[in-house]
Write a protein that binds this DNA or RNA. Structure first.
Lengths: 327, 327
DNA sequence: CTGTTAGCGCGTTCAG
DNA sequence: CTGAACGCGCTAACAG
């Protein structure tokens, strides 16, 4: 029997008799035959593989995105390769280059920095790419992200409405769009409330627990100390809470805190952080659908920017109405 | 210039002059040439890719393992593909078959169940495999795991030494070796302490927060209610704590709790769970080294079983010495 | 130091 | 309905 006949049975890519089919299936079962995807992809120029490049897979927010991507890709018969850049541009470059060598059909990228370079690099290989979570300046590409500016605005508004006046924002790296947008939303809310002196109110650091801890130690040593903190993400919030506890302060009695990104219920014993939750799973799902539509040619129109709303979840850490305190 | 000459420059796989080298490098830069790993692997029969198959990547314990694997594999020039089986044998089969089709060089497997079948399936394709975290009965294979029996024994001893007599263990699925071993260690400690009636003391359920919650609700409704719980893993512990809080009980005053697996400090505001921590990162690292040594032929000896010690971390949830209470 | 030949395992093309 | 020939992009083996 010719190899091509076997191929037709396996892929249902051509006509074959029932006799041939049963003989082929018997042989496959007996020999434990497994088709070679490499050879198939070399010929067909399609690997049925996507890549998801994130900055930190230990962050539950990115884990949610990953599940959304995985589920959607898997349903469409695609495999996903996950990569971690640890917010480093050089790691990002290394992984992207590896992925292109592996001939992945498409890439979902959370860019480490607001640079156009990685996206241009991918597009130069004619590989479709969707940017996730973060903006990239002036680049022709599909983007799926949340409205960080407005989310931070609402969080700041909540604190202002509760009577706070001295609020500090502990944001992420200045090179990352979400960190910048969250500061911008915070500043808009503060200015609207007539508070224009924000010199000591804005902090930037890594999107990590250590970053949140360090920034908090700095902020809380100021006199006067803020009455509320806005944490730029979940890890920063945890670091801030650890610093606050160390200083013997109580949340929300001594200081209120709100944050971007919820923590997964499977890991939190009694949720009490007031947060602006981002729909990670949906972001992953939508981004993957967009990418798959580009791949199949179902969608060939202009590049899209999908901006999803965030959800405010009020819990105990934001506290109740405050008396207006003196600055 | 012949293709093979270019190949030699790129892979440093043969001699070439400086003139040739510079011309090749110039052409690569100008054309944005990216080598095709598929074709290379098809020819060389090596993909430089490993696979890590775990049951639940959202569990920080497996995330630690994943980082250990990733770092070690990456240093050796290998890529890692991650797969989630959600403790399902059919998902596991699906992924393994996909991975073998992709011609991965080796597989690191956390088996969903104590069955020899998946390992046999992999070995039938002459692909090296290392089993992680769990035992498989009577199978010739390398294994890297922790001593669950002894870990659970020590946790139970701690509770017994503190004066507890009515202790319940909330373990994982009966089909999973770690769950069985942890129950065994618990039982050994109890029997040594002269407590032989363990009819109502052993519970099995999924290794999840929901599982821990459900088992706790069941246990805590008994009369008399246990004075201490031993949670089979971190998620079960969180679920148990949620159930305890809902019932208005205090830890450790009303009930003590200890657990397997620590929670990452980046996600926990004030660590208070007494735990038996497993060295996830080291497990991933050691397993990967073993696998890479098999691949390179550096290690061809008999199959190894590496059993790592666990570490007891005493915090507040186990409480202080109790007065001896009546059963 | 460089080139020629051949073939990895599969699927497209065109003939039987 | 089945098969033969060819080539995907690369590299092992063997010249020169």
């Amino acid at each position: 029997m010719a190899p091509i006949t076997v191929s037709r049975v396996i892929n249902k890519s051509g006509p074959f008799s029932e006799d041939v089919q049963s003989r082929v299936e018997a042989a496959i079962a007996e020999l434990g035959y497994v088709p070679n995807t490499l050879a198939r992809s070399l010929r067909s120029k399609r690997t049925h593989t996507l890549a998801l490049v994130v900055t930190d897979i230990t962050n539950p927010f990115f884990t949610s995105i990953a599940r959304g991507v995985e589920d959607t890709a898997s349903d469409a018969g695609f495999t996903v390769i996950y990569c971690n850049t640890d917010e480093s541009e050089s790691e990002e470059k290394k992984y992207l280059s590896m992925l292109l060598q592996k001939q992945v059909d498409g890439i979902l990228l959370v860019p480490a920095r607001s640079s156009t370079q990685p996206v241009e690099f991918i597009k130069a290989q004619n590989t479709p790419v969707v940017v996730l979570d973060r903006r990239i300046p002036e680049t022709e590409t599909d983007v799926v992200r949340c409205d960080s500016e407005n989310g931070a605005y609402q969080l700041a508004r909540l604190l202002l409405d509760l009577g706070h006046k001295r609020i500090a924002v502990l944001s992420g790296p200045v090179e990352v769009s979400t960190a910048v947008d969250r500061v911008a939303g915070f500043q808009r809310a503060m200015r609207e409330a007539g508070i224009d002196d924000l010199a000591d109110a804005v902090y930037h650091g890594p999107y990590s627990q250590a970053g949140g801890y360090a920034m908090s130690k700095q902020v809380l040593s100021k006199q006067p100390c803020p009455t509320a903190l806005l944490a730029g993400n979940n890890f920063i919030a945890v670091g801030a809470l650890q610093a606050i506890h160390e200083l013997g302060m109580q949340v929300p009695e001594d200081i209120a805190i709100v944050a971007f990104d919820d923590l997964p219920s499977a890991l939190v014993i009694s949720p009490f952080l007031t947060v602006m939750a981002q729909p990670g799973y949906a972001m992953g799902k939508i981004a993957t659908e967009l990418l798959l539509d580009r791949l199949s040619g179902k969608h060939t129109g202009p590049f899209q920017e999908v901006v999803l709303p965030t959800e405010l979840i009020v819990r105990r850490s934001s506290g109740n109405q405050r008396e207006i305190e003196s600055l």
